[in-house]
Design a protein around this nucleic acid. Structure first.
Lengths: 151, 151
DNA sequence: TTATATTAGTTGCATAACTAACTATATGTC
DNA sequence: GACATATAGTTAGTTATGCAACTAATATAA
């Protein structure tokens, strides 16, 4: 086992455990402290609906990197909290289009502010150039692992 | 909301959803294809025990970035699969020391190989310098969010 | 030395993840 | 039109996560 390989193994635990978990936990805590009763997973769905309302469940799953079973239950919970509603598509009745309710709409601004605030804390003392490298590396990692699928 | 801030909000979804999830899923798949019946979360615990056997549950939680409740249940499952055993410390009977069993020990080599192989796939075409930047950024993100705790 | 506080671990409750098997609707082919 | 196939979503089963409240053991302080 070469030294280079071992370093890559170490990187795995860095990537997967540490920083992203810390960011997620802090953002969740900031939501809670602000009296917002939503999870960051629910927020990730709302985030895409604020950008484009009325997406299908499958499209929401693609954009948030979830399989369809996970997406189903997240939307179950969002619907229970009356933040979204499912509407069967008229063109294709297999498809559920997901729409924001009037309860969800005003949450956009406050949650964006909390997310920005959290990222500012997380990324203070980190340069734009470094951020660009991270984004770029992550995109390429994603591409490396999804282009040729194993099944 | 400044343009810079918005970019940081975008970064959050990149960091948290995409690449790390893809790496975790691929590694899990590679374990399964090799006939290994362990989760990557269980592996993260074994990984630290292979480096240093007989850690306390709390110490294992610290090293794998989990709270003590999650650690308890992860070790419950590892114990059910007979991969580790709990031994009460003689010095302080509140403490459980966690030890690898003879079943777990031979898994080290094969899982390291699969992890390295997965990271090689994930990081092909990514330079050492870029990897260093990512590691460094993640360490600083973690430090930024854990030095001054909110509670 | 007894009362109080701290620490390590467990348990209950809720949310979320993935796989595999399932239902229902649409599409394609003969 | 009928049969096979593909697609969107749901459900069952298992594992994992976090918070809060709890127990048991140890340390501190009066």
């Amino acid at each position: 086992m070469s030294n280079n390989q071992f370093k890559r193994g170490e990187l795995y635990s860095v990537i997967n455990g540490m920083a992203t978990t810390a960011v997620a936990r802090r953002l969740q805590k900031n939501f809670r402290n602000a009296g917002l009763d939503i999870t960051i997973e629910q927020w990730s769905v709302l985030y895409h609906l604020w950008k484009e309302d009325g997406l299908s469940q499958l499209e929401l799953g693609n954009r948030t990197f979830r399989d369809k079973a996970s997406t189903t239950r997240l939307i179950d919970n969002l619907e229970k909290q009356e933040l979204v509603i499912r509407v069967a598509s008229k063109d294709d009745r297999r498809i559920n289009l997901v729409y924001l309710t009037d309860i969800a709409k005003p949450l956009q601004q406050i949650t964006y502010e909390l997310a920005n605030q959290t990222m500012n804390e997380a990324l203070s003392n980190i340069s734009k150039e470094e951020i660009e490298v991270v984004k770029n590396v992550f995109q390429r990692v994603y591409d490396n692992l999804t282009s040729k699928d194993l099944s």
